[in-house]
Design a protein around this nucleic acid. Structure first.
Lengths: 332, 332
DNA sequence: ATGAAAGCGCTAACAT
DNA sequence: ATGTTAGCGCTTTCAT
């Protein structure tokens, strides 16, 4: 900066105001157009680059938000990252994604937020929903966080999905189709919360006087190949289910492949229903019935965090509900 | 830090050495075990957190590496991120992922590397291969970078994939199966390099006296739904191809769905071959023939960057070649 | 409309 | 084995 100042024949203060342009017009106005030009030119010729850490150290603000995600695998990752980033960018913030496959990694990342790694964090909690206590510890340390998932720890702004009605509708639909033996492919044991979807499906089935046999429950819905094996397994059981409910569309599509592989017709021999309403479900044969968000728009999560960054003293949490619907197609 | 020092009755230097533990045993040894304990305790009771930006400002090193990726969508993303992160972590480095859907965003991210955002960058260049000039500009600015992709700009360590032999084998295989009209689903025009795969496939076909009809070329191989439409399109052409080659497994699998949807048998009515050798290709019906990496291990890219960070003055570039193979399965 | 200077929290050279 | 101190590059208050 000193070099630029020398080159442009101004003080470092002036350079700072030109490159920073903080506080809107208040301070921008103090620089004459001529001076600004000279500084900008000097920056060009010198090839000056702002030193971020120094700026952050002084400003005590990073203008950066962390997206903490357990793994990159869901068809939503792309949606989510771009939706959130677009909103953040529009507010002068940038996004860094950190993959945290374990609770340790999540802790490590979160630890550094008050230390100036970022101003706040957005967390996709599928795997961490069981660890609300950990998350709440950070909330108490004033780490601004928004969260998307089943968990609703306090101290957070939470975007939850209103899954229940759609799950119920899916169950009703399957039962109405005459199915009595239902299989379930859920998330891995370390993932997701107390398996909300499984609980809900079971509860709804109970209202029809039905139950899911323990032997008909498998895991790994988020991994195509794992879910495929699980589905094969279920289908070749002696008293095999006539319908499979997967906690993820990815797993459901794998199950369709498994049906094809074993010569079973969908939905006649085996009905299949997924969760998520991903686009891919519209190109399978048959097309996938799925309970999922009405539209995959995750921008609200970013808005929640931005609001929280703007009002650091607010104590009450904001909650948002993304509506779900059940979309019956030909796989059930 | 001053608070910790006061609490522990030591100087800030001592605190610094305890939390930093720099230069291995050289400096770690200077702290007695008793002192270390006291400091650690003080840190606990105070709830002290290192201020990253201050540390980075002073150390002139972030111990962080950026992974720049055009979009999260490939089945490799997960592999890539975890492979790279594991290696980096083992060397005391951490990884931040920044999604750069446009060249502008890539520029913005890269601009901040010399400014202290990160020590170096790893770039997945599928979309940016056409912009070698931009990348080389940063290389000249001493941004340590490793790159995975078709492009081989100078100033970089490059991990390239040895695609050619596998692509050739795939073409030979299709031709041997008697196919003469070949369709191609490539990447979007803004993506990938001068379409290396298309060029190579065409060249190899030429050796068999065959050519790809311009009308049989589509794009969007990385997006399942787009590729699905493209495949449908190709299949319903008057003189439709009897084999479809997709530049991505994702697109090839979408093409299999399209075949199912229109009642075509694979491979009898239409043969389908993809690129990437992703796991998902082993659960489709029929299973997908694919040209791709022998094993999806991306750790070498991280090693390359780490070496470069360790030898900042090295000028010559290192090159690594990930071997590819063609795996014929039942889709062709 | 512009400049001088203090200091953000930390590290590391140097001193003891 | 431990302490003193000079900055790292920037922003911002206060002065002019």
């Amino acid at each position: 900066m000193a070099d630029v100042a020398r080159e442009a024949n101004v003080s470092v203060t002036t350079v700072s105001y030109v490159i920073g342009g903080r506080r809107g017009n208040l301070d921008a106005a103090r620089i004459s157009n001529d001076t600004r030009r000279r500084v900008l030119d000097a920056i060009q010729t010198i090839g000056y680059q702002v030193n971020e850490p120094a700026r952050v150290l002084r400003r005590r603000r990073t203008d950066r938000v962390l997206l903490l995600i357990d793994r990159l695998s869901s068809p939503y990752d792309q949606h989510f990252a771009t939706d959130v980033e677009d909103v953040l960018n529009a507010h002068g913030l940038s996004l860094s994604i950190v993959v945290c496959p374990t609770l340790d990694r999540l802790n490590a990342a979160l630890d550094m937020v008050p230390g100036g790694l970022a101003d706040g964090a957005i967390i996709l909690t599928w795997s961490f929903a069981r660890h609300q206590d950990v998350l709440e510890r950070y909330a108490r340390q004033q780490v601004p966080m928004a969260i998307l998932g089943a968990a609703q720890p306090s101290g957070f702004d939470v975007v939850a999905q209103d899954e229940a009605p759609a799950l119920d509708a899916a169950v009703d639909h399957i039962v109405a189709r005459g199915h009595r033996r239902i299989g379930f492919i859920g998330h891995l044991p370390d993932q997701s919360d107390p398996e909300f979807r499984l609980r809900r499906v079971r509860a709804r089935l109970a209202r029809h006087g039905l139950a899911i046999h323990d032997a008909h429950i498998r895991t790994g819905a988020r991994d195509r190949n794992v879910a495929y094996e699980a589905a094969l397994d279920l289908m070749t059981l002696p008293e095999s289910p006539t319908a499979i409910f997967s906690a993820s569309d990815t797993g459901a599509i794998a199950a369709i492949w498994a049906a094809h592989a074993t010569g079973r017709r969908v939905p006649d021999d085996i009905a299949i229903v997924g969760c998520g309403n991903v686009d891919e479900g519209r190109i399978t044969v048959p097309r996938l019935s799925s309970a999922g968000p009405v539209s995959p728009d995750f921008a609200p999560v970013a808005h929640l965090l931005i609001e929280r960054l703007r009002e650091p003293d607010r104590t009450e949490d904001r909650h948002l509900l993304i509506p779900w619907e059940f979309v019956p197609r030909e796989s059930s």
